[in-house]
Structures are given as C-alpha cells and as structure tokens.
Design a protein around this nucleic acid. Sequence first.
RNA 1: GCGCCCGUAGCUCAGGUGGAUAGAGCAUGGGAUUUCUAAUCCCAGGGUCGCUGGUUCGAGUCCAGCCGGGCGUACCA
Length: 618
Amino acid sequence: MADDGPSARVNFRSALRAAFRAALESLAADGGVAIAAHEMPGLLEQVRETADAKFGDYSGTMAMALAKRAGKKPRDVAVEIIRRLEAAPGYGTLFQPPGDPVGPGFINVRVQDSALAAAVGRAVADERLGVALVVKPRTVVVDFSSPNVAKPMHVGHIRSTVIGDAIARILRFRGHHVITDNHLGDWGTQFGMILWGWKHCRDDAAFAADPTAELGRLYRLVRKVADAKPEELAADPAAGALAAQHPAAGSEVLAETAKLHEGDPENRALWERFMPVCRGEIDRIYRRLHVTFDHTLGESFFQPLLAATVDDLVAKGLARESRGAIGIFLGGEDDPPLLIRKADGAFLYATTDLATIQWRLEHWKPDRMLYVVDHRQSQHFEQVFEAARRWGVDGVADVDLVHVAFGTVLGEDGKPFKTRAGDTVGLEALLDEGVDRAAAVVGTDDEGRAGMTAEDRRHVAETVGIGAIKYADLSQNRTTDYVFSFDKMLQLTGNTAAYMQYAVARVEGIFTKGAVDRGQLRRDCRGVLVSDPKERALALELLRFGEALEDVEADSRPNVLTAWLYDLAGCYSTFYDALPVLKAEGADRDSRLAVCDLTGRVLRRGLELLGIGTVEKM
RNA sequence: GCGCCCGUAGCUCAGGUGGAUAGAGCAUGGGAUUUCUAAUCCCAGGGUCGCUGGUUCGAGUCCAGCCGGGCGUACCA
C-alpha cells in the first residue's frame, strides 16, 4: 500500500489551526491585539467542528474573546482575522474563503470539495487510513489491570483492563512509544490470607484437583475470618466456626504477610508454588479478552528495592517515624501521612508505588505515566505523586504522572454489582454469560445468514458478546459510575458493539456480493465524488478519524472514539440507505465503492483500537 | 469534620480548558421496503441542565453558597 508519509495525510482541523495561528500571530505583530505565546494553544482550541453543518465544517470563536482586550468590536476583530486567514500559507488550497463573520463574530470555514475528495482518495490508498503520526512521539507507560492475583478476577477488574488496553492501543497507533505494565498485586495482605488459610484449613485433595479453585476458596474464607464482621460470620457457618477457633486471625494474617516480606523460607516457598497457579488463572482471561502486556512487573518484583526506598526517604528527611510506623508528612501535622512502613515492619502499596516510579524512570525514561485505576484511589495517587516529586528522583520533574480514574460498576439496582447471594461477580462467569446471551441474539437461523456453520456462529457470539461488554464500558465517560446491563449492551440498535460490528459486516457484504477486487480498487482510486451532501458528510467524517484519536489522547477518554465511530456509522447508514453503490455506474460506482471500502476499514480499525473484534458475516 | 467525584428528557447516558436553537439511544407515536444484509433509514412529541446568587457579549460548562447521592479520610490494595 502506498505510504507517502505525513505530508500525504491531512488533518483538516490541524491544518486550519495552523492557518489561524499564522493569522493571529500576524494580527499580534501588527499591534491589533496582544497575544502571549502561552495563550496561543488555548485560542487555537477554539477552532473546532461546527455544531451544525449549515455553519460550515469548522468554526473559530476566538475573535469574541479577543475583542475586549483589543478594545474593538468582536466582528471587527473577526474581519481582521479573516483577512489574514485567507492569506495564510496553504489555506486557500484546503478551505473556501470564510466570507463575513456570522452572528457576534463566528468565523465559519468550509473545506474545499476538491481538497476533500483528494484527501479521501489518498486515505483509501493509505495503510494508516489517512491518519498522520504524531509530530513528537512520547514514551508513555500505561499501568493498568493490576489485579490481586491471590483472588479470582471479578467484575471490578474489567474497567481498568478494558480502558487501559484501549488507551495503550490508541496511543501506539498515534505513534507514541507505549510501554504497558501489569502491576500485579502479588505481595500484599491477600497472600497473607492464603498463607494463613493454607496452614489452618487447606483441602489437599481439592488443591490437587483444582489449585485455582482451592486458593480462591481459601482467600474468600480467610478474608471473612480476618475481617470478623459479625453479619458476614453469621451468614457463613464455616467462616463463623473458624473465627471462633481463631479470634486473633486478623493479626495472624498480617504476621504471615510480614514473614513473607522478611524472607521466611516456608512462606516464600509457598508463594513460589502459588504464583504459577494464580498467573495461569489470569492469563486465561487475558487471552480471552485479547489483552496483552509488554511487562508484568508485580509488587514482588519491586520488593527488593523497598527497604532502600524507605531508608532514602528517611535520610532525605521526607519520612519519619510516627506511632511506630514510618510515614511521609505531606500536609500539616494533623493531616494523615502517607505510610510507607507499618509498625510490624511490612511495607505498603505506597512504598511499592514510589519504588516503581523510581525504577521506571531509571529504566524506561517515560515522558508520561498513566495509572488506570479506580477513582477511589485518587487521594492515594495524589499523595504518591506529590511524595515522588518531593523525593526528587532522577527524571521525576519532567514526567507527567496521571491518574486515569474511573467509576464503579453498578448493578441495575444502582448498587455495586453483586450476585443475588451478595458475592462479587467473577469475571469469567460474566464473559460466559455475555457470550451466551450474544449467541441467543445473533445465532438464529435466517436467510441472510444461511451458510454459516455452527463454528461460525460460535465465533460470532464470542466476538459480539465480548465486544458488547468492552464497548459498553468504553462508550461511557470513564469518570462516572456505570450501570452494567446485558440487555442494554446487547441491543442491536443504538451505540453498541453489535450495531458497530453489524455496520462492518454490511460493508463486507457489498464486496462479497459484488466480487470487487479491493486491492485494485484502492490502487486505482484517484479521489472520490462529494457532490451529494450525504456522500460529502461521510467523506468529511472519515477524515476526522485522526481528530477523534487526538481528542482521546488529550484526556484519556476512549468514549470520544466510540462516539465518533457511532456518528460515522450513522453517516454511513444514511449514505448507504439513500445512494446506490453496486447498482450505480461508472465514476459514481467507483467512488462509492472506494468510500465504502474506507468506511469498513476505518470502522474495523477503530474497533480494533478499542480491543474489539469484527466478523465478516453476522 | 475535611477532601475528591457526581446531579442533564420517563429510563440509560453524550455534551475538549465558556460559543450559535442542550444532543443520542431505549421507550412512545407516525412514515419508508418487489432489500445492495431493514440488525436499516426518515419524521414527531418529550428539558426550570438539583437550587440560589455571581463573573460576561454569551454559562449545562467557570466562581461562591446551599440541597441531594457516592467514595475516601494512619499502618488493606
């Protein structure tokens, strides 16, 4: 496929912003209005797509904001900008002359049809579908998923895993150097629980038969015993009896954890024995989700660094002893410190997080580190980031540390998602149910799907079911809590995975039915026709792929991409409903086939960047 | 008590660091079909953007104060 480099790829919004930059700099140089260099990015962000096509394709609103300080009328400032905009390098080849300002001072711009048609033609011939690479690639660490391996993965892990994977894929496609790391919880108190359980109430036969299940049972049992909540113990006779026998179980669990941390041979050996079991369990789920990591450096990996971390923080006067523990006092004396060593000598996750930051800075030299973690830990990350900056390890002053927070998964009753019995929902059972329900929705036999084998149907159900779970999560603003509903996510209409996947399958159907050589089509495409408004709207939307990805990156919000894909699918449906493709003739047919080809590829790539698969037929 | 997040249509949700008449889907009502995969498309009704003030050419968006909900708040992660 042709790849003529960035110059062949046009991002109309970026191009227009560059023209506005030239216009505004010229205006400032002429004394029209004072603009400080640091204000320019904010002003250029006011160049964006219009809310309504009747205003053109893009608009700039900065004239109104600048008018006051210039002591002029907004429209007069807009006229000054427009005059310079038209003279900006490259403007005229891409955009029509803006004409007069509209309303209080809107500058509305429309893309030249010729430029639009040619850009679509180049995108059709481009493996990157017309999406330019970032000018300044950054090294970005994405830290996500991070389950506690001693307990089975549950619904609470889905968001971090799915959102983190999507962000990593998108940043990588944009051209950044992305390093994904699964920071496993493999060294904390939950292992103390399993160790305690192993020593007091293990079932050897059960462990031999199904190690994962037995470790899971031990975790759930000991957690109840250690927490010693009367209502939980009353509801679970086995836990209740055990708690009665071991009133000090809670502190004994902590002691087991501390022994592990201190290098106790027995606990260490048990840990070595349990880890492969735990890893096998989570790896199976990652395979099913098609999620991979560049690194899986869990808490245990950083364990050898922790003592030195605490010593260094103490030596630098940042941390000190308090009530037997060691903490970093970031606020006043009354504010709770960030504890990095407990009174019993054990380290905490703050300790590991600080050591991890230092290690990553030294070995990976990232420009940015994204932590895709539950919003409930926002305070923890604020403290850890602040502590890391004060610690002043090499590179920390130049790295962006970002907590990419997300809300809780709720059931349809609005409460945290639990089974009827009140247990957390296992992730694997959740995926199974999604696939089963998808099979019921898509698996019925009818004419359009004749010729699909049982194997095909299973594959479609798996793709649609897993896709539905992922898409439902990704399409929602990550900061809010989200209500988990199989019925909603598996709808075939609206902004769902199934609708998007169906849109892809419809495009595939055209090429299958028409026996079109798509390779030939792409090579021969010299541009497309945009004379029909529906055709033009689709063409313009296709070329906004790069803008959508840019906006995802700005705030780590994958729902920006799902929303755009849904809009694109809507533009396509409208186009396809109104205009014949295979039945068209000559240049119309070639042009529309090219647009269909590009639409299918963009939709598929967009879903792929969300970690969602597609099928040829459904 | 303090801190963070949230409150938008009957329901579930979108609404870049302020922009044009607040948008989708579901549900409700109406229309399009000798189907290029109708799992689609088009149209309609439906809103005090929690409340009250403030900032300004302009506020769902920013500020202050209330009301309501969630989460966190010293040795779990």
